[in-house]
Design a protein around this nucleic acid. Structure first.
Length: 422
RNA sequence: GGAGAGGUGGCUGAGCGGUUGAAAGCGCCUGCCUCGAAAGCAGGUGACGGGGUUCCCUCGUUCGUGGGUUCAAAUCCCACCCUCUCCGCCA
């Protein structure tokens, strides 16, 4: 969330920032109004409480001296109820204010290009040579079906649409990719591996920004109010919720594999074929918690770590810079590496690397203590390294042969125990 | 799921209705001592939110969370959450 001080002091700056994210300015005015009400109520109640505290001290003194205190007690009789009334009002206003603060998006970094939606994003970097095919490359869903490794019908049968089953070397390829990606990030880039719960509580979902605004995107268990994590970002970032980190521990670099669950509300009709947009998918996610002054440098490193996976797999990609309108709710800056899919003749998002600055840290109350003892909010970042199912799709499409077999990228052969899926 | 124990400041841990934001110890910071350090001695040391004449003063809140009782709650009552031990069930 944004600091209330910033909203108070520079409301027009905040309005302009959220407008560039396609959010109306009314929320800022509503916040300012409630903030004013809150402070007025607080002053009134504090004055009464001060009065009560002084009276209590006098009563205590009288009691100690074994003197009669009935008059003093009688005089305070209804002050308590006045305070109770004011506290109740404050609580109502406070709750409403807090809810609005949780619903206001992060402001974009000043350097982010202003734009309305994904059409205004820029490709800022391109890597790799697209392979020239002597035949018409097929999309991964056709390859997956003919090889018998991706079974969408089975997924629909046992669960529903947008679920799929992997079989044989398909299942093994998914598992190999997870292990290999984790190994690269841990062994070569110094991340610490985490295997968190896939179910998270309401506080965790609020801490990273999925709640309260995007509840309809998440799977939820009615009986105990838990959510299926939409990304490992949620459990992993929340490892540090309400923690005070000694500065020397920063930067903290975590990498986690989890299954991810998304309702994909509003995606009806989009990417209906294949395994690009599904309700359950595997992802390896990197999460960083860093000192504020280093967060943009760390974003560059994070991007390089994500794209390094694509380079090791020799998959052509480009990097898309998100405009303000496509940053999402919590990010101040975001880049999406997109992989080339020759079977579909398009680039597909395969990672998303964001700097949230202190937006998540404020919500989740993640702070660090500097050498001179001061407390500040950290900056948080995360990026997929990578979405596993989409990586498998990209491998199938880029490494396919005319006879329908698929070659295994060199780095994965030791994990797969074979160099071809046939 | 059942029974029991417990949740207090950075940590350990007292307090169990009335100057208790909270003893004591540890840790940390400052000063004295020292060539320097340790030891010793003295002092200081939480967070959050208001207000102000804004390197400081002041008020309020804060002892797992939320309610309740009371002039007054860390302290009494209720509910919930979490941790530990034992039992049961179980991949």
């Amino acid at each position: 969330m944004l600091s209330i001080e910033l909203i108070r002091q520079q409301p027009d700056f905040v309005k302009a920032g959220i407008a560039s994210k396609n959010e109306g300015p009314e929320i800022v005015d509503e916040i300012l109004l409630l903030d004013r009400q809150r402070r007025e109520l607080l002053q009134e109640a504090d004055a009464l409480k001060h009065h009560r505290n002084e009276a209590s001290e006098r009563i205590a003194a009288l009691k100690r001296d074994h003197q009669d205190a009935t008059d003093a007690i009688a005089a305070m009789k209804d002050v308590g109820s006045q305070i109770g009334h004011l506290d109740e009002l404050t609580k109502t206003v406070d709750g409403r204010l807090h809810d609005l603060l949780l619903r206001i998006p992060n402001l974009p970094h000043a350097s982010v290009p202003v734009g309305r939606n994904e059409n205004d994003n820029d490709v800022v970097f391109t890597w790799g040579d697209k392979r020239t095919f002597s035949f018409v490359p097929r999309p991964h869903w056709e390859l997956g079906e003919s090889l018998g490794i991706i079974d969408s019908a089975a997924g629909a049968k046992i669960t529903g649409s947008r679920f799929y089953v992997l079989r044989g070397l398909g299942a093994k390829l998914e598992r190999s990719l997870i292990s290999w990606m984790l190994d690269v990030h841990v062994q070569e880039e110094g991340y610490t591996e985490i295997l968190p719960p896939y179910l998270v509580n309401r506080d965790s979902m609020t801490g990273t920004g999925q709640l309260p605004k995007f509840a309809e995107d998440s799977y939820h268990t009615d009986t105990d109010d838990l959510f299926l994590d939409p990304t490992a970002e949620v459990p992993v970032t929340n490892l540090l919720r309400d923690e005070i980190i000694q500065e020397g521990r920063l930067p903290i670099k975590y990498v986690a594999y989890t299954a991810c669950f998304r309702k994909e509300a509003g995606a009806a009709g989009k990417d209906t074929r294949g395994i690009i947009r599904v309700h359950q998918f595997n992802k390896v996610e990197m999460v960083k918690v860093v000192r504020p002054e280093e967060s943009y440098h760390e974003l560059d490193l994070l991007l390089d770590n994500a794209e390094g996976i694509l380079r090791r797999l020799d998959l052509p990609y480009h990097r898309s810079r998100m405009c303000t309108g496509d940053l999402g709710f919590a990010a101040a800056m975001k880049y999406d590496p997109e992989v080339w899919m020759p079977g579909q003749d398009r680039y597909v998002e395969i990672s998303s690397c964001s700097n949230f600055e202190d937006f998540q840290a404020r919500r989740a109350n993640i702070r660090y203590r500097t050498a001179d003892g001061k407390l500040s909010f950290v900056h948080t970042l995360n990026g997929s390294g990578l979405a596993v199912g989409r990586t498998m799709a990209a491998i199938l499409e880029n490494y396919q042969e005319e006879d329908g077999t698929v070659r295994i990228p060199d780095v994965l052969v030791p994990y797969m125990g074979t160099d071809t899926i046939r």
